[in-house]
Nucleic acid binder design. Structure first.
Lengths: 150, 150
DNA sequence: TCTAGATTATTGCATTTGCAACTATTGTCA
DNA sequence: TGACAATAGTTGCAAATGCAATAATCTAGA
């Protein structure tokens, strides 16, 4: 029998919102949002990325990301380049300052995660991550809202 | 070694966003948002609730919820009452129409959940839920943003 | 080669959201 | 009892968000 408060989507959202709230507060003094942090951390991981790829990774609309990257660029935390061999895409990279900031913030993320999973074993955490990845891949990506083939 | 794309907060957000997107699309024809559905489903579960309690359950700001419940009330899906013995609080209840709509939508939520966890065993799903609840309780509630005692 | 279509990002616009301020009511304790 | 504090909800306002439309570039087929 179905109960909202025992359903996976609900519990997922609840945990996700809370963890994001806590992290948002920690990075607020640097005037960063959680999405901004994810962009920076992603670039630290991959060195460079296009807007579209970043949008996929960060799970936000590309239009939102365009503006978000714009403000990061204004603050000299990232650079935006249109390659000569491809004038459509925009390559985003960390600046040295962006990299320094990211390195300073990552330990906070590590600590937050440790707090969140504090009473779980390594196996439990691994199972959790696996489940989260599975659910993501079990659901359609649906970029063009109500689109069914074409 | 830390990797954003292997961190729990990131994976949590990614799965949560995607599952919410899919559900949002399914209930869009009824002009409902996911938060609205959660309010309705919560009231179906508890019969009645105050705004503050609903805000906690649904994980949104009470100001947002106030407006959200306002539009639900305008559509006659819920009723708002200030009890005579307590003029501060507002009791929200489902109307018959709201109940009918909720009953119609709940199977969609069930099916979505089934799709999301399709390749997991009952034990795995139970462990997932347990982990999600734990993380939620492991993190501070922080209603008043940067507040530390007083 | 030239054109129609696809891809990628940006911008306009309306909606949603959250924080802060405010109102109203209730609780407390001197 | 009376005043001050605490609680509950609403509203103003600015910021963030998403969708749709647009611009610019690239790709592919005739």
């Amino acid at each position: 029998m179905y109960k909202l408060t025992d359903s996976v989507p609900y519990l997922l959202n609840r945990a996700g919102v809370r963890i994001a709230e806590v992290f948002a507060q920690r990075i607020a003094e640097d005037n960063l949002s959680v999405a901004m942090y994810r962009v920076l951390a992603m670039l630290k991981e991959r060195r460079e990325s296009t807007l579209g790829d970043l949008a996929d990774v960060v799970s936000v609309e590309i239009s939102t990301l365009s503006r978000l990257v714009g403000t990061l660029a204004k603050r000299k935390l990232v650079s935006r380049t249109r390659p000569e061999d491809n004038g459509r895409i925009v390559i985003v990279r960390l600046t040295p300052q962006g990299e320094a900031l990211t390195e300073r913030l990552m330990p906070l993320a590590v600590e937050l995660e440790r707090t969140a999973v504090q009473d779980m074993s390594d196996e439990e955490v691994a199972a959790l991550k696996k489940a989260l990845r599975r659910m993501h891949s079990n659901l359609p990506a649906m970029s063009g809202k109500g689109k069914v083939a074409s």
